[in-house]
Each structure stands twice: as structure tokens, then as C-alpha cells.
């Protein structure tokens, strides 16, 4: 991605979270105009019908297993593959 590229965010359409996530997104855009210029849209999809969300589920799942010290078996191999390909990670402090 280049500095001028923009992102449309696609998030799982979970009834109990979607509305507040939209509020959080709008609040962040007001707080950080640089983020508003980068993430230019948010939409909700049912993950059952959108494989990229299923892939993101796998991505998040293996990293949570690692964070909880429960990584093992096939999931360790999955994490190795993803780790080799994607490097943008944080876990230090909550970003403003």
C-alpha cells in the first residue's frame, strides 16, 4: 500500500456489536483525521458469506492462541506461515 491508498473496512455483522463498532469508528475518525483519510468506509458482512472474514477469523484465532500460550499442533504451523508473510503486529500499549 502507498500513502495515498485507502481502505474500506469490512467487519462481521454481529448484531450485538455492529452498532457500537460504528460509533467507535466514527469517534476515531473525529479524533484522528489521518485515520479518517486512510479508512474511508466501514461496512458489515455476514462472515458466512464472505470468505475474507473467515480468513481474518483464522488469522485472529491463531494469534490469540499464541497470546494465551495455547498454541500447538497444526495451529503452530498456521501461525508460522502467517508470521512469515505478515509482519505488522502490536501488543504493547493501547494506541490513541
Amino acid at each position: 500500500m502507498t500513502a495515498t491508498d485507502t481502505l474500506t473496512l469490512i467487519y462481521d455483522d454481529a448484531e450485538e456489536y455492529a452498532s457500537e463498532c460504528l460509533t467507535a469508528y466514527r469517534r476515531l475518525k473525529k479524533l484522528r483525521s489521518d485515520i479518517g483519510d486512510r479508512i474511508v468506509g466501514l461496512c458489515f458482512h455476514d462472515d458466512k458469506h464472505y470468505p475474507p472474514l473467515q480468513a481474518a477469523d483464522m488469522f485472529a484465532f491463531v494469534y490469540r492462541l499464541r497470546a494465551e500460550g495455547k498454541l500447538g499442533g497444526i495451529w503452530a504451523e498456521v501461525l508460522q506461515k502467517l508470521d512469515r508473510t505478515f509482519s505488522d503486529q502490536s501488543g504493547s500499549e493501547i494506541l490513541v
Binding site: 485507502t6 481502505l7 464472505y50 480468513a55
Partner: peptide, 17 residues
């Protein structure tokens, strides 16, 4: 160049992470 970011979570408030 508009990228689509599929975004998902693992874990809720009942977990440590």
C-alpha cells in the same frame, strides 16, 4: 487504489486477550 480490509476478532471481554 481502494483496498478492502476484512477485519475480525478473537476473544471477547471474558478472555485475557
Amino acid at each position: 487504489a481502494i483496498f478492502h480490509a476484512a477485519f475480525d476478532e478473537s476473544g471477547k471481554a471474558d478472555r485475557e486477550h
